[in-house]
Design a protein around this nucleic acid. Structure first.
Lengths: 143, 143
DNA sequence: GAGATGCGGTAACGAAATGAGACCATATCT
DNA sequence: AGATATGGTCTCATTTCGTTACCGCATCTC
């Protein structure tokens, strides 16, 4: 029943709003999955690594190359936390030098589904965001 | 055609994999919407603020209370960047003391849809994540 | 056989982001 | 007069991040 923006987004807004209230009452810090999960999703490299692994397992150095400007340090760190959360599986083959590969677990694959939606949104609306950004910056500069 | 985990996630994995390859060829840093968008989505507070505003506009201090343990500093900062990206609209009413409220724009509401999917995933799989986490930690401790 | 290269990382250090808290002007309530 | 609320900003300590150097080992090149 809110008046302002009712595309087809009203339902989602309502749903999310209810979730928020529920977390709020539940104590928030304790059992809020969003904090727990989004902190990881949102740490700048996780999503990129997950998408890089979407189709096939990759070795450490392949990831290092493919993801682009990530440092080994952050790659190691991010992979560890993804592994810890059960999204990624690390396999060592006892060759010399050791070969290590990383692959998505079922849990890891399953998160790609909602992520696809988000990526789709990002691509669809990227222009709108950039437009808004420019407008904002010019307005700020004018002042 | 990958063998390992084929729930219903195969399609998403394939799609995401293709996207990744496309970004990769396109140069990555330049026109990668994910970097651009996910950096914002994933900054620990943005999603929380967006969900807090899902149903109704709120004032600065209401947000400060509702979101919980966010500092005013980060609240201001996050709101500014959401505003800059056109997700949130800031309105000042010339009262004394000034009243300011924040509301989602159409763009802001539209992102709730993919976010809902992600939140749903987080809640559905939260137990799996925590289980994996405990297993990992115990194994690490045993070593 | 000497040096460079690739492997999968770790250690150390400076830079950047973040969090906690004090502070501000104004106005109202007690 | 003093406390409280409003919407922030400023400062400073802690945390996190990114860069670079380095490790042992094996293979490839000269």
């Amino acid at each position: 029943m809110t008046r302002e923006h009712e595309g087809n987004h009203a339902a989602a807004s309502e749903t999310v709003g209810e979730h928020f209230d529920a977390w709020h009452e539940a104590g928030f810090a304790e059992n809020c999955p969003v904090r727990d999960v989004l902190d990881r999703i949102g740490d700048k490299w996780s999503v990129l690594i997950l998408t890089a692994l979407a189709r096939e397992p990759k070795r450490f150095s392949a990831l290092n190359r493919d993801v682009g400007d990530i440092s080994k340090r952050m790659l190691t760190q991010t992979l560890r936390s993804l592994q810890r959360d059960g999204l990624v599986e690390r396999t060592v083959y006892p060759t010399t030098p050791p070969t290590v590969d990383y692959r998505l677990t079922e849990l890891g694959h399953s998160v790609l589904e909602p992520l696809t939606a988000l990526i789709g949104w990002a691509e669809a609306r990227h222009d709108d965001i950039r437009t808004a950004r420019h407008a904002f910056d010019e307005e700020a500069e004018a002042a």
